[in-house]
């Protein structure tokens, strides 16, 4: 079996890469795929806490590439979802602890066993980025509707192309439709216009308080049937698996709900 290695990257930090990795990965596993999440953000390990698996770490990615343990033993199986594993980053080392060559080797061996290898890339475009993309077959760029994030996303598109990763997917994160309607937030069409034909829109995730709650608990929002962001991630997963899914209507409720909100009958 040969799975796909997909790197999730953004250039700018704080746009939600780790959350996107956790939710897409969990969602893919819920759909019956065998998935491993690889935290390539060495020194700033976070995917473990977002996944709620921080108390089960024995070995990390650096232990694996330096031969102190087998990959198998370093993988943490998520007991909530069948077929989902995590390979944590090291918290005590830095971005030079893994080379591009080692990363390629690791990805090649992981995709023998998993359908999807999702790599959580560190912010920035330095060595950590180069390492994270080294073994990837495809890329997902995460951005938010802000000038700085989009500028970095555009830069990353060029760098990915240089690394042989063309036509990356785009996930627009944290959009607020109330602000878009007011004309105070870039809309998805503005974002795809600006980034051009070089990106393929994979999904639109609303700014949703349930993400904070789910991160507090260490349970990806995709597991919560009531979460709107979770729904957006479930749609993203179906698109990744080749289904045609319409982009969800992000206007909170219909006109009636908005009217009720206006007269104070709903919050």
């Amino acid at each position: 079996m040969s799975g796909q290695v997909v790197v999730v990257t953004s250039g700018k930090g704080g746009v939600g890469k780790t959350t996107v990795v956790a939710n897409i990965g969990t969602g893919l596993a819920l759909s019956g795929q065998k998935v491993v999440l690889v935290d390539a953000d060495i020194g700033l390990r976070n995917l473990d806490v977002v996944m709620g698996l921080e108390n089960r770490i024995l070995y990390d990615i650096v232990d694996v590439v330096e031969g102190r343990t087998e990959v198998r033993k370093a993988l943490i199986r998520d007991k909530r979802v069948e077929g989902l594993s995590l390979l944590p980053a090291s918290q005590t080392r830095d971005k030079t602890a893994v080379t591009e060559e080692q990363m390629k080797c690791l990805c090649d061996s992981l995709k023998e066993e998993f359908d999807y290898v999702l790599i959580d890339c560190p912010a920035g475009i330095e060595q950590g980025f180069q390492n994270a993309v080294a073994g990837a077959d495809g890329a997902i760029i995460v951005s938010i509707p802000e000038v700085s994030a989009l500028r970095d996303a555009d830069k990353v598109v060029g760098l990915l192309e240089g690394a042989g990763l063309t036509d990356p997917y785009l996930v627009v994160n944290r959009i607020r439709m109330d602000m878009v309607r007011r004309g105070d937030m870039l809309d998805v069409s503005d974002m795809t216009d600006i980034l051009g034909r070089q990106v393929r829109l994979l999904g639109i995730v609303p700014d949703d308080q349930s993400i904070i709650v789910s991160t507090n608990r260490g349970e990806p929002a995709v597991l919560d049937p009531k979460s709107r962001a979770g729904q957006a991630f479930r749609n993203i997963v179906r698109r990744l698996l080749g289904e045609e899914v319409e982009f969800m209507d992000l206007n909170e409720g219909g006109l009636v709900a908005r009217l009720m909100k206006l007269v104070g009958l709903a919050k």
Partner: peptide, 20 residues
């Protein structure tokens, strides 16, 4: 009055012309 998103779009387009 136009929202700030049109300003953001214009500024972004300009800065990307330079970056690219």
């Amino acid at each position: 009055d136009q929202g700030s998103s049109s300003i953001a779009k214009k500024r972004l387009q300009l800065v990307l012309v330079q970056d690219r």
